[in-house]
Simulated assay, not measured.
Amino acid sequence: MNRKPRNLRSEQKDATREQILEAATRLLAEHGYAALRVAAVATEAGVSLGGQLHHFPSKESLVIAVLERLSARVLELAVQEAARASKEDDCLAPISKSAERFYAAPEFLIYLDIFLSVRRHTLVGDTAARLLLSQRAATEALWLPHLTGRGISEEEALLIVRSLWALSRGLAISSAGEQRKSNDQATIDFAIKALRHAYLKNHE
């Protein structure tokens, strides 16, 4: 009896799983959590419904896997951005740009939709909250050395990072239209200028 090598079967299983997660991510971004149907995900991924249910037995398990995948992807991008910023003289603009990119990305919109669609203290809702908190802590840990290395205390550095991310989050949620985007950028530029004057100038 012919059997596929174990590693080949494993690779094919991983590839199918990735197809399903990609399809679910696209449908979540396009239609939202409430409209997501596992049968539609299987069709989008080009796999049988039974094959999908083998990997993800329920809608909840599928969405949680999508959230975990998105969280890992976002953190990977954040690590790359922080590494690039270490070569620059100004650290506030890269921190702000990192936040802007995150809140403008489909990943954040999926998280936001789930927060608005799912009841609290459910498996999906609690997982989304846990991942966001973990993601925030990891992101802060990446950026803090850029500020503490300039003589700013860790407490103040944390306030700076959180302020820039909170500002970007608020603007992303409320923004609409090109004129609004222009006003948002002016707001962010003003905040960076104020923070630079209040903190960085005192530690040069």
Rank of each mutant, 00 (worst) to 15 (best):
Y33T: 04
G177M: 13
A24H: 01
A78F: 02
L123E: 14
S58M: 04
R180H: 15
Q52A: 06
S134E: 14
N7K: 14
R69K: 14
A34M: 12
G177T: 10
G125Y: 00
L144F: 02
A157S: 13
H197I: 14
A29E: 02
D184I: 03
V41K: 00
S98C: 09
G149V: 04
D184T: 09
Q179P: 00
T122C: 07
E107V: 10
H197F: 14
A34W: 01
L142M: 08
R26Y: 09
R26C: 06
D184L: 05
V161N: 00
E81K: 09
N7D: 13
R162T: 05
A15C: 07
L67I: 11
L27K: 08
Y111V: 14
S58V: 10
S58K: 12
L167C: 02
R37M: 08
S48C: 03
A105W: 10
R9E: 12
K4N: 07
S48V: 06
L77R: 15
M1I: 08
A129L: 04
Q12G: 05
E178V: 14
G51Q: 00
K181R: 14
D89T: 15
S86D: 06
E88H: 09
Q80A: 15
S174F: 06
A194N: 11
D90G: 04
D89N: 13
I110R: 00
A83M: 08
A191H: 10
S48K: 07
A83K: 09
A186M: 05
T139P: 02
D113R: 12
L195I: 13
A72W: 04
E178M: 11
K201M: 12
P106C: 08
A29I: 11
A82W: 00
L132N: 08
H197N: 15
K4L: 13
H54S: 05
S182M: 06
I173P: 12
L62S: 11
E30F: 03
V161K: 00
R37C: 07
G32T: 05
R169T: 02
A82Y: 00
K59L: 04
L53M: 10
S96P: 01
D184F: 04
D14A: 13
A72V: 12
A82G: 09
M1K: 06
Q52P: 03
L159T: 05
I152W: 02
L28I: 11
S71H: 05
D126R: 03
I20F: 02
Q52G: 10
A138L: 10
S10N: 14
E44F: 01
M1H: 05
A194H: 10
R162V: 13
S182L: 07
E60C: 02
L28F: 03
I188K: 10
A198K: 15
A141M: 03
S86Y: 01
S98N: 09
D14T: 11
S61D: 13
S134I: 02
E155C: 14
A72Q: 13
L164K: 04
L53S: 04
G51C: 04
L133F: 07
L75C: 11
A45P: 01
L28K: 04
S58D: 12
V118Q: 03
A138Q: 12
G50N: 03
V63F: 00
I114G: 01
R69S: 15
E76K: 15
S61E: 13
L62G: 06
E107H: 13
V161R: 00
Y111N: 07
I152Y: 03
L123P: 11
